[in-house]
């Protein structure tokens, strides 16, 4: 699991990054808000957890959250803000800017571990939902191919495709769906066929 840590204070960044590495996370460190945003933009297609200090040069942590939600609304990112005890009033503003959670500095290791586990659970859930949406979209694409006005020969029942070729109805449907055909004969056709055979047999006997 990749975690981005963004803090301009090297002591805070070191203790955060090393604690996360002790827990075997793959950690990247950014020294300011601009660098953090660039990392997140390049990781837009990967589930990512980020821990962002509020006060940073170039872009504050809350502004990074706001930009991520604005520019990458579908990115699967769990954003945590770090703020000091005296700045607890910022928590609401941070969550409204797009953060998912917050930690008070200096972080308590056990609390941070528990909150990261929540983040990982949310990211995994989002990932599974995205996979299911993709499966549904794929299924819808198949169904769509059988929609619309189909030109069909009223005599031989062939269908004219987009390529202008006339194709047997079985082939046409099989190519555009997961349906397969097993050939048989329905009772009305069987009765009609029997009558036709009987008619031929009678005609031959009369000859």
């Amino acid at each position: 699991m990749k975690i981005l840590v963004a803090d301009d204070d090297r002591i805070a960044a070191t203790v955060l990054a090393q604690t996360l590495r002790q827990w075997e996370f793959d950690v990247t460190v950014a020294a300011d808000g601009g660098e953090a945003l660039r990392h997140l933009q390049s990781a837009a297609t990967t589930p990512t957890l980020a821990i962002l200090d509020w006060m940073m040069p170039e872009l504050e942590g809350a502004e990074v959250c706001r930009r991520v939600r604005l520019e990458m609304p579908l990115a699967n990112m769990y954003l945590m803000l770090l703020t000091s005890l005296e700045s607890k009033d910022r928590i609401v503003a941070g969550l409204e800017a797009g953060a998912d959670d917050y930690l008070i500095k200096p972080f308590d290791p056990e609390e941070m571990r528990a909150r990261i586990n929540v983040g990982i659970r949310v990211l995994a859930l989002q990932e599974r939902l995205a996979e299911q949406v993709k499966d549904l979209q794929d299924a819808l694409t198949n169904v769509k191919q059988l929609h619309g006005l189909l030109p069909i020969c009223s005599y031989c029942k062939r269908i004219r495709g987009d390529d202008q070729y006339w194709t047997a109805v079985e082939s046409y449907i099989a190519e555009r769906s997961n349906a397969q055909f097993s050939h048989g004969i329905c009772p009305p056709c069987a009765s009609a066929l029997e009558r036709e055979i009987e008619k031929h047999r009678s005609a031959r006997q009369q000859d």
């Binding site: 070191t14 090393q18 002790q22």
Partner: peptide, 21 residues
């Protein structure tokens, strides 16, 4: 020591940085 998870190397690094900064 609780903050650094008992990692003596990390503690020493933080102390060194603080003394510098």
């Amino acid at each position: 020591d609780r903050q650094t998870g008992g990692d003596a190397g990390l503690r020493a690094e933080l102390v060194r940085m603080f003394l510098e900064d």
